[in-house]
Design a protein around this nucleic acid. Structure first.
Lengths: 338, 338
DNA sequence: CCGAGTTATGTAACCGGTTACGGTTCGCCG
DNA sequence: CGGCGAACCGTAACCGGTTACATAACTCGG
């Protein structure tokens, strides 16, 4: 019934458990003959060491815990893919747990990982720093992704949302747009906040009047924002949404209402989800897979003592210019929605 | 340095480790006063039980291993999301591991899970049954997803690709299309094979000449297929791709070449990725999140002995009709690509 | 042919929990 | 007041590995 244990192998190979352990772990102080006997016995029994027991005595689990918020689609899968690639390359497994917005549940998830993982990867752009600090087991090494502030001694990786947003606004301005509305992400979300900051900074630089409409990263928010823009009557020639899904919702609603994009109103997003390419949506690309892989690499280095001392790391996103923000000069002038 | 252990708590609360264990696990044979002392001490020390040790003595890890192929985007994330939802609802964690097409690596991944998880969820539409049988540790309960054949005693969940494909062909026929080409998925992939089967069956039923172009589930294959169709000069009025990505590639190439969709050639896919909706691509929707959740539920039932005896389960996909397969009658007749 | 040094192996303690089992304390009844 | 059972608690064995240390075997120089 139960799987074979190391003692079963020892019995069958007629050696001690110590020799079995040594032989299978490739230590050099075993006679070749003994090693062969052990390997033979292990194969015959289909023996696979019990990772739980192993990690108990080694104090090493060779697994890392990944705690992510409720991400969607490509973003989530790319992130996990990048992490998995690097982790499996280095012989680690990924223990996954979502933290569904609720910071209480996040704490539970984090505790559940004690004794199962060697380190933690935490992405929590929506959790307040002190809450996070409090929920994070202090003794366990971790790397933070896109989270608020620095936490004592924990490396943090993030992409430069602010620079990305500024670049997009610069691009819009360069292409002749002057009345740019920003659809913001959810309250308290760090990514959203930084993107809004970048937008405001760029507006200020060009002495453009900023205008922000609240949103929540969902498509519906983009649709609502579009309706608001159309109804308000305020002069608007471009919309820069804090993420692609809202941009897409906005784009759809605008076009359905007969507004030409980009001729009357330009639309831009953030993230470069695959949809964006097909809709020719201008956006800011962020290589999340690479960031995930880097995070894993950093964490494992930390665990194995090979830590390079660089503390935090910033990934600069890349501007992706497509048709929804084509230069104003290219189409008729002065047709901004009134 | 190291986290507090149960013995530390015992010392501080001035009781034995047994009492600590009993108190924290909510057994009833502890005096209320003792329980309080223990809880107080545990809180003061920030004690969190070591899951590895716990699972060793309980022979229960409260984790399930998930082994997936290299899925993309929404499909992957929805699958994991559904699993995670159900798993965390029932107090389990997910141990994730990709098996990158390579069946050798799959075996390694599976072995690594021994002693960490109570059961396995395996999706392997591309692995031959005997290989899979061989790689799967016989003693550990598992649930198969979309995999070849039944494996002794392991429940299998799958969606009815065949029925989905047939439904789509029926739909095309009903809308007036007669020369339907199928772009197949990769060789050896079960999903792909079943979809092709469904296509052939439906063609046979309507005495339509089948025509299959090889593909690999990637967008580029769809583009290539489109070029081949345009170049071949064979009469074609509809393309049914084995997945959405190929359909999308095909759609793009056709339109770029000036072919009107659906007026000249209709296009349909399979999966209903989010992109499909935006491109108005007709497709077959498969609720992967639900299947993931069901798989987890089945597995946990199995583990906890509450197994309902239903052995295998089939999820019927749903036809999603959109503009790329609009009825032939609606546009001019007889304009099939020659 | 003996003792020192080297190498291969076995024994048992340990990792951090759970729990069977036995002992103590106490209340209560006869 | 003795005896009995219930309630509570502590000791130690166990889960399945690793490894320090002791021991046995074997080599080799003198």
């Amino acid at each position: 019934m139960g799987e074979a244990t190391i003692r079963d192998v020892a019995r069958r190979a007629e050696v001690s458990v110590a020799s079995v352990s040594r032989a299978l772990n490739g230590l050099d102080n075993v006679r070749a003959e003994t090693r062969d006997k052990v390997i033979k016995a292990a194969n015959e029994l289909g023996y696979v060491p019990h990772a739980g027991a192993r990690s108990l005595s080694l104090a090493r689990a060779h697994a890392i815990g990944v705690v992510l918020p409720d991400l969607h689609g490509e973003f989530f899968s790319e992130c996990v893919r990048g992490m998995d690639r690097e982790a499996s390359r280095r012989g680690y497994l990924l223990l996954l747990s979502n933290m569904h917005d609720d910071s209480e549940q996040a704490a539970v998830a984090l505790r559940a990982m004690r004794g199962r993982v060697d380190g933690l990867l935490v992405m929590a752009p929506h959790i307040a720093p002190e809450t996070l600090e409090h929920a994070l087991p202090p003794a366990i090494p971790s790397v933070l992704l896109n989270s608020h502030a620095e936490l004592a001694g924990r490396p943090a990786l993030r992409f430069d949302n602010r620079a990305g947003a500024e670049a997009m606004v610069e691009h819009l301005v360069a292409n002749g747009y002057r009345h740019i509305v920003h659809i913001a992400g959810p309250e308290g979300n760090l990514d959203a906040a930084q993107r809004a900051e970048g937008y405001l900074a760029a507006c200020a630089r060009h002495a453009l009047p900023p205008r922000i409409i609240a949103g929540d990263f969902n498509e519906e928010a983009g649709e609502a924002a579009a309706r608001e823009i159309l109804a308000s009557g305020t002069l608007t020639d471009a919309v820069f949404a804090a993420n692609d899904m809202m941009a897409i919702g906005c784009l759809h609603t605008l076009r359905s209402a007969g507004t030409a994009v980009p001729e009357q109103i330009a639309v831009a997003g953030f993230d470069d989800v695959p949809l964006a390419r097909y809709l020719s949506l201008s956006t800011v690309r962020v290589n999340i897979a690479e960031m995930g892989a880097c995070a894993v690499a950093r964490l494992i280095d930390l665990l194995e003592g090979k830590d390079l001392k660089r503390d935090s790391e910033t990934f600069t996103p890349e501007l992706v210019m497509r048709a929804t923000t084509a230069p104003r000069a290219a189409h008729q002038d002065g047709a901004a929605h009134a």
